[in-house]
Amino acid sequence: MVDTAGWLHRTKQDRGAASLSIMQTRKNLMRAHIVALVLDAEEIAKDGRSMKHDEVVIARRAVEEGLGLIVIVNKMDLLKGKLYERVIKAVPEEIQTVIPQVTGIPVVFVSALEGKGRTAVMRQVIDTYETWCLRLSIACLNHWLRKVMSRHSWKDQAAQPKVKYFTQVKARPPTFVAFVSSKAKLSDTDLRFLTRSLKEDFNLGGIPIRIMQRSVARSAGVSSGTSKSSQPTGKLVERVVSDKRTILTEAT
């Protein structure tokens, strides 16, 4: 566990110990498994917004790097009555708006002064880490795939992509591969639907999920001496879709 308190307050320093501290903090962020972003409840109530620009940058950076993210709202003891209830309701909604790549980011409301919420924070960190490390079997994923593909509303039924099977290739964060027939590829809308369904059906909220798409494109012509049982020739096209970016690669 590494405390990076003061990073935002020192970002305008260009030289000296403060600059070295900022560099070390960024290195620690890249080496982390779970990032706990601490917000000030008093500032949220005063400014009328949950996250400042710098805090949004940190949260998005954590998501782009594939890290687990939880949000901690401190100093809740300073809020009373309707203001307390308004902050509890508004913070999760606003976080989902500014970080739409990851749904279900857990938010824990605490008071460090009174010692309230400490157990909840550690429990949430452990739960998020276990989800981040989750591995699903091929049988489980393909059983899920048959159900989820049947309830998806395709724009063109005739051009519906044929997903042969679905598998998880790594954890931390969970990364999946959809093997698709060569006639069609999954659109960005289809991939977003699969991502959302994975998070809802397997309770993967609060962590980034990556889905890669692989398909084999047949060549235009096939020689007469080639048997029907032989493997199709052509290019292996791999489309990688993640919370950070989309990459198109082709290997001859």
Rank of each mutant, 00 (worst) to 15 (best):
W144I: 09
Q101R: 08
G117K: 11
L136T: 06
E114P: 00
D127C: 03
D40Y: 07
I126L: 10
A139T: 15
K46Y: 09
E85M: 08
V125W: 01
V110K: 00
A120C: 02
L145V: 07
L113W: 11
D77P: 10
R118F: 15
E64G: 12
L136V: 08
Y165F: 14
Y165A: 03
A158N: 14
W154G: 01
H143C: 04
A112V: 09
L69T: 02
T131S: 11
G66R: 05
M122E: 10
H152E: 07
S137N: 09
L78Q: 11
Q160W: 08
P100C: 04
D156L: 07
L186F: 09
E93T: 14
T119I: 12
Q96F: 02
A171F: 11
A62E: 06
I70E: 03
A158R: 15
I44Y: 04
P161S: 10
K185Q: 13
I99A: 06
G104Q: 03
K183E: 12
D54T: 07
I88T: 09
S153Q: 10
I105P: 01
I105A: 05
K75W: 10
G117V: 10
V63W: 05
A59Y: 04
C140V: 15
G81A: 07
Y165W: 08
R123I: 11
T167K: 15
Y165N: 03
P161M: 11
A139N: 13
L113R: 15
Y129I: 01
Q96C: 01
V98P: 06
V108W: 00
D40V: 07
Q96K: 09
A171T: 15
H53E: 13
W154C: 01
V56C: 04
P173T: 10
S181F: 03
V163H: 13
G48T: 07
V148W: 07
A62W: 08
A112F: 05
Q157L: 12
G66E: 03
K183Q: 09
E93A: 15
Q168E: 08
T167P: 05
E64F: 07
K116R: 15
L79Y: 12
Q124Y: 00
D54A: 12
Y129L: 11
G68H: 01
L113D: 11
D156T: 12
W132F: 13
Q168G: 11
T175D: 01
K52L: 09
T175I: 13
V125T: 01
V63D: 03
D77W: 11
L67F: 05
A184P: 00
G104R: 02
Q160T: 15
